[in-house]
């Protein structure tokens, strides 16, 4: 197991970046570099992360970055991977680092193609559940009931289950993570690095700006997401589903906090009625029933 003490003191997300205070994606980036070091080439589509490092001639990313078109992460990474193979470079990890919009919506085709082609790279979707870059519009990852600037009375539809969409691609490794659980986060990224083929990691990255909570509460928000079961830490390794702690201890519904505790802390859910909250609770419980079955089948 990874221990915090053993982690490199080296920082590859440098000071001076321009992310919002309390930015979950920025914490996630820092952890990503802690996990992989600097033998990494990053492909970053249009998203908050294309802004976070700041404008030319400066950057706060201390690794090579190909900034790319919004919908093209999977394809661009395919090109980088192919080039490295031609140049016989074996010790560099290619990472696609995209938001939920660039993954669930406009970039799903390129991602699906890259996965189907068994491209050897790690695709990470950091999910702040909206289009952050453009000022918080709904995405296919925005949860039911959430306010965004394009769903001013709350989103009427549910979030896509992207991890299972990727599971249907039969790729060797899928994991969920959250920067509130840094050890789990780093271990999963390191594991992904060792596996050949397409690896997909879905990160819940709380966003105080879009979710409307106090900037000091990002880590807490991630923890609550996990403890209520709204977010579940799991892996699907070569088709084998496995819950990870602390989610693995939450199969029993009684151990999970009510989702209401998570929802009521965020301004974006202010307009949810009791009925909406009940609906969300029911969906969470249904998901967990599925996870329970999957976990016990293995």
């Amino acid at each position: 197991m990874v221990s915090i003490k053993e982690l490199s003191k080296e920082e590859y997300l440098l000071k001076g970046h321009i992310a919002c205070a309390g930015c979950g994606p920025a914490i996630s980036l820092r952890l990503l570099f802690k996990a992989l070091g600097n033998k990494v080439i990053l492909v970053v589509p249009a998203c908050c992360s294309s802004v976070i490092p700041g404008p030319y001639p400066f950057t706060s990313f201390a690794v090579p970055v190909q900034n790319m078109l919004f919908e093209a992460t999977g394809a661009t990474a395919s090109g980088v991977v192919a080039a490295l193979r031609q140049r016989d470079i074996k010790d560099v990890t290619v990472v696609g680092w995209a938001g939920d919009g660039g993954t669930f919506d406009i970039g799903i085709q390129a991602l699906s193609g890259a996965a189907e082609r068994e491209t050897d790279f790690i695709y990470i979707c950091y999910d702040n559940e909206a289009y952050g870059n453009t000022g918080v519009q709904r995405s296919g990852a925005t949860p039911y009931g959430a306010w965004t600037t394009t769903t001013p009375t709350g989103k009427k539809e549910r979030k896509k289950d992207i991890a299972f969409i990727m599971a249907a691609h039969r790729i060797p490794y899928i994991a969920t993570a959250c920067p509130s659980y840094p050890i789990d986060f780093i271990e999963k990224i390191r594991k992904a690095k060792e596996i050949k083929g397409t690896k997909f990691i879905h990160i819940l990255a709380p966003c105080p700006t879009g979710w409307r909570y106090d900037t000091s509460k990002t880590v807490e928000m991630g923890r609550l997401a996990v403890r209520t079961g709204v977010w579940t830490l799991f892996e699907i390794e070569h088709g084998k589903f496995k819950l990870n702690p602390p989610s693995s201890r939450l199969i029993d519904r009684a151990k999970r906090k009510p989702v209401k505790e998570y929802l009521t802390l965020q301004g974006r859910f202010r307009k949810l009625t009791e009925v909406d909250i009940e609906k969300t609770q029911k969906w969470v419980d249904e998901d967990w029933e599925r996870y329970r079955k999957l976990a016990s089948n293995q």
């Binding site: 999977g74 080039a83 140049r87």
Partner: peptide, 14 residues
């Protein structure tokens, strides 16, 4: 679109 994106990634990688 992906063809050109992949070419961009490959060319950028040298």
């Amino acid at each position: 679109h992906s063809a050109m994106a992949a070419c961009i990634g490959a060319a950028a990688a040298g």
